[in-house]
Design a protein around this nucleic acid. Structure first.
Length: 213
DNA sequence: GAAGTCAACGTGCCTG
DNA sequence: CAGGCACGTTGACTTC
């Protein structure tokens, strides 16, 4: 693995891709001959480099540095490629994101230079990161609203029960007086206890002796 | 092999 | 009109 930057604060942005012209070679566990070459993450391989096919992620070293994987497609056209950011690149991008949700052109250029990425890659990373953040926020919001919904449902059920209780009370008293006619409960006798937020008929003036509390 | 992750891309909208 | 963004999608790769 070639270190592009030797200072301790700089990033190791070199990557190893199997199947490229060799700077070193070895044998895979399955006995397959492996040819590998290290190259700059931003360096676009030449056409002939693209034509090589072997891809084996198991050959990755203990660091999580990965890089561009090249796979030729059947029609002999240019291969597709997939870049994986290194842990260090991701970490620095994440740090910048924590500081600034969006990029300005200067920041983009600076970050790109610092990370040895193209400005467009930094831009794309931020766009995707914002999208992921939004999804996360939506999930959090969903959980919160779900909690509200559950609590309100519970409250609603309690209130329904209270209404039923009050109706039963009213029916009971009307039976005693042998009145069978439905009479609405006098609203002046219904009060809400400010302490427990429940409607009741038996609250005292100091609000402290609510039957519900 | 299905599902999940993530870099990259295409498109449409907005703003200065 | 250029640049930036959100959004949806694609395709390579990983994980289970």
């Amino acid at each position: 693995m070639k270190n592009l930057h030797k200072s301790p604060t700089s990033l190791d942005l070199s990557i190893s891709v199997l199947g490229f012209a060799s700077s070193s070679s070895g044998k895979q566990g399955d006995g397959r001959n492996v040819v590998r070459r290290d190259f700059d993450i931003n360096e676009v391989p030449s056409e002939e480099q693209w034509t090589t096919t072997t891809v084996d992620r198991n050959e990755e070293e203990s660091t999580t540095t990965i890089g561009i994987i090249n796979i030729t497609n059947g029609d002999g056209g240019p291969p597709t490629k997939k870049l994986r950011l290194t842990e260090e690149q991701s970490r620095l991008l994440e740090e910048s994101f924590q500081q600034n949700y969006t990029l300005n052109p200067k920041m983009k250029e600076e970050l790109a230079g610092k990370l040895a990425l193209k400005p467009r890659q930094v831009e794309v990373w931020f766009q995707n990161r914002r999208a992921r953040y939004k999804v996360k926020q939506t999930e959090i919001e969903y959980e919160y609203l779900k909690g509200c919904f559950e609590s309100l449902t519970e409250q609603n059920n309690k209130l329904y029960k209270e209404v039923e209780e009050l109706r039963a009370m009213r029916v009971g008293s009307s039976t005693k007086s042998s009145h069978r006619v439905y009479e609405p409960f006098p609203s002046s006798k219904l009060v809400m206890c400010p302490q427990c937020q429940r409607v009741t008929t038996t609250i005292t003036t100091d609000h402290g002796n609510c039957v519900n509390s």
